[in-house]
Design a protein around this nucleic acid. Structure first.
Lengths: 98, 98
DNA sequence: CAGCTATTTGTTCATTTAGCCAAATAGGCA
DNA sequence: TGCCTATTTGGCTAAATGAACAAATAGCTG
């Protein structure tokens, strides 16, 4: 699994996108199904513009998808394996798969 | 899997530690077994002090272990599930495990 | 002990990021 | 069309990060 320079850049950007507790929260919320910006904003103590930017960061690396219906934008999780990895982070020993 | 605020902070710091292509490279190299700072520095186009700081970042969140032997410090990977996750990042669809 | 090698840490500078507010955009609906 | 709601984007400031060089530390070895 020797990754190329481009692959490493991509991976680093992917991790960067997850490197914020608000974005982790968003990912966890989307595990239950899609949500619009307004729903997420209601759960997060921050401006809607801030939440929108967090979502843009996640979308930019393909972690979430967005679909516009009426005048709302719904975001959904596109990379559910993040959820597995979150478990591994908190319990590394139990998750060895080699 | 509703995480607590502290868990999310921890996860975010974990991802932050991986959010740099040099640190991804280090993790990949350590997949083959432990390496000392000088070996890693020889592979990376950066100052040894920079590599040492990258290793400190990884160690700080428990991604790597270090053990000093003679006057060298050897680093080893403590969270191998990162390697699985790297694969998932590049091929999300193939890795659904639900 | 003195000198050498490996590593870490202090300092500084440039770049990036997060947040808010305000303004712009887009899609209903009267 | 004109208003209202939902969302994104521009502009700004404060804080965090990454890198290099130099200095400090730690452990050999003569």
């Amino acid at each position: 699994m020797p990754a190329s320079v481009q692959q490493r850049e991509f991976s680093a950007n992917f991790f960067k996108a997850l490197a914020h507790s608000t974005r982790i929260f968003i990912v966890e919320q989307l595990a239950d199904g899609e949500k619009c910006v307004c729903e997420l904003t209601a759960m997060i103590d921050a401006d809607m513009s801030t939440v929108s930017r967090h979502l843009a960061v996640l979308k930019n690396v393909g972690i979430v998808n967005s679909s516009k219906r009426a005048n709302q934008v719904f975001y959904s999780l596109r990379t559910p394996c993040i959820l597995n990895f979150l478990q591994c982070i908190h319990n590394p020993q139990a998750q060895r798969q080699d």
